[in-house]
């Protein structure tokens, strides 16, 4: 019973987020719809760069870390590093792909 009550409360408290999620899903589908096959690879690569936004979370975590917690500091450093690789590498490689299409 307690679990059910908690679950319901969870949905109630976070209803804006649930609306947000549902609408975003439809935006995602809408944005991709009708893309020609030739652009699938650059698009996948571009989407890959965008989920690098996870780096924002990594930075957020870092900013709230207690410096005495060395393990967290090391993991946070790694997380920011990996996130940056994802973002920078993702956008640059996508740009390289699209550059070729534009040459004509």
């Amino acid at each position: 019973m307690e679990i059910i009550r908690q679950t319901l409360a969870f949905f109630g408290e976070n209803r804006e987020i649930f609306y947000f999620v549902i609408l975003s899903i439809f935006v995602g589908i809408e944005v991709i719809g009708g893309v020609p096959t030739v652009l699938h690879t650059p698009l996948m690569s571009g989407a890959n760069a965008i989920h690098g936004v996870v780096i924002v979370g990594a930075i957020h975590v870092m900013l709230n870390i207690d410096t005495s917690n060395i393990l967290a500091l090391v993991l946070g450093f790694l997380a920011v590093l990996l996130g940056t690789l994802n973002v920078v590498g993702g956008f640059v490689v996508t740009d390289r792909m699209l550059e070729m299409f534009k040459k004509k």
């Binding site: 935006v27 991709i32 996948m44 989407a47 936004v53 996870v54």
Partner: peptide
């Protein structure tokens, strides 16, 4: 995974970015 991070910190840019890629990637 990025979207769950967004939920965790109530961070809207992570939510949008993550879900966009999640749904677009699934459709692709």
């Amino acid at each position: 995974a990025a979207a769950f991070g967004g939920f965790l910190y109530d961070n809207k840019v992570m939510l949008t970015g993550g879900i966009l890629v999640g749904s677009a990637g699934t459709l692709l």
